[in-house]
């Protein structure tokens, strides 16, 4: 995979009356899938709306394909496939009309690809948009987003509210598209299972701030819950643990640098005084939310 970043965000800031997106910075290398995880109201949708130039930022920089999307809106959007949380289409128009209408705006629209997606998704060309279920509307959004050869896909909670079958179908399509066509993807979700399945990079967002960003495998390798009997851990390690709880077995706490302390725990693990439990993205998110 290339390492060149397709997207760079620096110190992005957006203020609302009761919410501030504060100093958000991250980057997405070409060909990577980045998942933004956070609870409702964390700022995921605001971040994505800012990337899409749907709202104005109060400060910070956004760079997509080396361009400022506010100054080069048409060029940047021509190279982006977007699927939002809500599917906005002209409700009284048919699927075919929607495809024809949208195709006129994109330089690299591939009609054969669009028709193939409609067939794969079993979307009737003659059906009106208002007659489609939410899942079918999401599929139409994906058909549009993928039919103009985008280099970057920006997806805002595309799978929320969908049944597991359609969710899996969409995630598989996304993974296939990203891997086979080397497309970069930013996907926000509060369904951590979805992101665990497809993302390379995970960014945790809480209360308008980025709490952590890193490669998913590194995160999962470093974030562990350590169960230990009293006196089994050194003071340094005990002090570095988060969310420490007293349990029947002894105590337990979270570490975010397991690989660094792994060797120091080996003895305790051997004596069965220390047990290490793998965490999933949900556990990490909850630990952030609970502080």
């Amino acid at each position: 995979m290339e390492n060149k970043n397709v997207l760079e965000v620096k110190n992005l800031r957006k203020e609302y009356k009761e919410f501030t997106l504060d100093n958000v910075s991250f980057s997405v290398p070409a060909g990577y899938i980045m998942g933004i995880i956070g609870p409702n109201g964390a700022g995921k949708t605001t971040t994505i709306k800012l990337l899409m130039n749907l709202i104005k930022p109060e400060g910070g920089e956004i760079n997509i394909f080396g361009l400022d999307p506010r100054k080069n809106e048409k060029e940047v959007k021509n190279r982006i496939g977007y699927v939002g949380e809500e599917q906005y289409f002209y409700q009284n128009k048919t699927v075919a009309w929607t495809g024809r209408f949208v195709s006129q705006f994109f330089k690299q629209w591939n009609n054969n690809k669009f028709n193939a997606f409609l067939e794969d998704f079993k979307l009737s060309r003659t059906k009106k948009v208002k007659e489609l279920s939410r899942g079918m509307k999401v599929k139409l959004s994906f058909a549009i987003a993928l039919s103009h050869q985008p280099e970057l896909l920006i997806l805002d909670e595309p799978t929320s509210g969908l049944d597991p079958v359609i969710r899996r179908e969409i995630l598989d399509l996304l993974l296939k598209t990203s891997r086979e066509e080397n497309k970069s993807v930013i996907i926000s979700s509060h369904i951590t299972d979805d992101l665990a399945r497809i993302a390379d990079i995970i960014t945790f967002m809480i209360n308008g701030k980025i709490r952590l960003t890193g490669e998913k495998d590194d995160l999962l390798a470093n974030w562990k819950r350590i169960h230990y009997k009293k006196g089994a851990l050194s003071k340094n390690i005990t002090a570095s643990l988060n969310n420490v709880q007293d349990q029947v077995f002894g105590s337990s706490g979270l570490t975010d640098h397991y690989l660094k302390i792994k060797d120091q725990l080996a003895d305790g693990i051997g004596k069965e005084e220390i047990k290490v439990e793998n965490l999933n993205l949900d556990d990490i998110l909850i630990s952030f939310v609970k502080g």
Binding site: E73, K74, E75, K77, E86, Y88, Y90, F105
Partner: peptide, 17 residues
């Protein structure tokens, strides 16, 4: 019509200023 369909929101996701 634009308000009912959220047409402006839709158009803003396309390469149109």
């Amino acid at each position: 019509q634009e308000a009912k369909n959220k047409g402006y929101e839709f158009l803003q996701t396309l390469p149109v200023t």
